[in-house]
Design a protein around this nucleic acid. Structure first.
Lengths: 338, 338
DNA sequence: ATGAAAGCGCTAACAT
DNA sequence: ATGTTAGCGCTTTCAT
């Protein structure tokens, strides 16, 4: 069942059928009705592949995330999918599993599939560079959340410096003196930027960083739990633990519970992301909410802009970096103001 | 940069380049090397769209889930993505947001895009039928987890009857007498099957169902919490709450906590799915683990089988229904054996 | 082992 | 307003 079949059935040319079905040009109302009727009757459904080949666009956007199992990325995926659906486009979802090689494979496949654009959260600070650069050279690309240094690519994410400032200020106001930071290995931009934000803002606010007070692991509950056990095995204990994401923070809360440390009386704990479960742990978690839906929408807007630039319908602009400010969500894991 | 460009650069025909790059036919080793070298040098990356048009397959599988934000579906997506990646295929992910109209749109789009197959977890028992039937008529389709009555379509999911039997037996052995069931509205197969399994197994095991002991809501923490508050506002209280999924169960645990009910001493609570957070609530949640990775793999195997049947390389078989047995994961929300 | 030619199903340029 | 024509880039007969 092809366009031509429908055309034959109605007794018009394929072009006319195409025009009716895509409303790309005026067609006599009477013919249009007959065409539509025939298309429905014959169960004609179109061939997106042929259309894509001819129009040179696929109405598909590719996305590569480090892990679909991390609820933060899930909410990014959700935001992207909604916006795309509203625009009549679709999402080709890829999971790099934190592996730069898998990531590179996915990116190559997306280019080969001629997606209209790629949204990527590069899994590794260094190892992701070549594949991201190669991809950006072939197709509009925007980095979301994590970022890698590649010239001319846009990025949308969190203002990590400000984020850490907000958390530390919040903690200082609530009596914190000695702070620690639990994060993942320094192999991605989020971690690096947040660690830097932690150090600088702690200095700025006159907060003392516990000795060996920056503990590395990964973005997971288990890792956060282990890190906090390590932290409290040492003589000088922090009175506040800043965690690089909510998963780590939830692990930290568990460790505190098991160690018999009262939160927030003895130790305050904070996270980042505001995943749904931050509300469901006990004590509930003070954290920073990221505007994931807006971030996803902005990423797609930039992608559209890049596409317009490469087809000549817009002027070139330099790389955009959109750093969103988070919103502090105060809950029970930090104290009330004195 | 097309196949023809590479062919020109080497001085051979496009056919030869195609044969080298897809190893579809023997080519003189020396020429093959030169072709590969030229392809790399020119940065040729192939055009998957043109290839798909010609070969009449896209190496893409579409998936439609009721909500990507539900961790259970996320793990199904993860399983599917991994298996597909191993086979060199890609995943077109769609979220129906529990809306049959959105679901129908997505299914139509997948057919139009000529995906090689569709995996769907239909959001509504009744309203999803027409779109699923229409899709199944056009492309290999398998239902995963949730299911709708459409002739000739395969289904992979959980043995819900057995699941409820396992939970209720576990609870009875641990002293439960009066049980309640908290689930979502009866508009999808999971809910219907589980409610039925609950009733039948309770009767079989001699367990009393609390008056109005089947409470409907949705698959979410908030809903579980509200349902349990309702349940305990009544005179005759259950001593065990069976929840249709872990999200509901986590809500139930919160409600019990807030109501000052000790779990598992006064009330036992169980979930289904074994999402990661079932380990991180307090008390930790007794639940049933679903073999999501295997389920995803089986769904894809059946899809491949259907594809083979429709291209004539395999004999037609009747609809397969694969009901996996869950694994009981005992944790703190149910008691130890007396 | 290689090349020439046809065509997958569609849309857009160019007629009329 | 409609039809005719020419491809999009690839794979696959068919011929050599």
């Amino acid at each position: 069942m092809t366009l031509a079949d429908v055309a034959d059935a109605v007794g018009v040319s394929p072009s006319t059928v195409s025009r009716v079905l895509t409303s790309s040009r005026p067609v006599a109302p009477e013919i249009a009705t007959r065409v539509r009727e025939a298309a429905t009757r014959l169960g004609y459904s179109g061939n997106g592949i042929a259309r894509a080949l001819r129009r040179r666009r696929t109405d598909t956007v590719g996305m590569v995330v480090p892990s679909i199992l991390n609820p933060f990325f899930t909410s990014l995926v959700d935001g992207l999918e909604r916006t795309l659906h509203d625009e009549g486009k679709q999402l080709l979802l890829c999971d790099s599993r934190q592996d730069p090689d898998v990531e590179a494979e996915h990116l190559r496949a997306l280019v080969e599939r001629h997606v209209d654009g790629v949204v990527v959260s590069p899994c590794d600070d260094v190892a992701s560079i070549p594949a991201v650069a190669r991809t950006a050279a072939a197709v509009p690309l925007v980095q979301l959340d994590r970022r890698v240094e590649v010239d001319g690519t846009d990025w949308v994410g969190l203002d990590d410096h400000r984020a850490l400032g907000m958390l530390l200020e919040h903690l200082r106001d609530r009596g914190a003196r000695v702070v620690a930071f639990v994060t993942s290995e320094m192999t991605n931009s989020s971690t690096v930027d947040r660690a830097r934000g932690f150090r600088e803002n702690a200095a700025l606010l006159g907060l003392q960083v516990a000795p060996d007070g920056i503990v590395l692991g990964e973005f997971s509950v288990a890792s956060g739990e282990a890190a906090v056990r390590t932290l409290f095995a040492r003589p000088q204990r922090p009175d506040a633990i800043v965690c690089a994401d909510d998963l780590i923070a939830i692990g930290a809360l568990r460790a505190c519970h098991d160690l018999g440390l009262r939160v927030p009386e003895e130790v305050q704990v904070t996270g980042i992301d505001d995943i749904e479960f931050a509300t469901y742990v006990s004590p509930t978690l003070t954290t920073l909410a990221q505007p994931t839906a807006r971030m996803a929408a902005e990423a797609l807007r930039l992608l559209g802009l890049r596409a317009a630039i490469s087809d000549g319908s817009a002027h070139a602009i330099e790389a955009t970096r959109l750093a969103f400010s988070p919103r502090l969500v105060e809950r029970e894991s930090t104290r009330s103001l004195p």
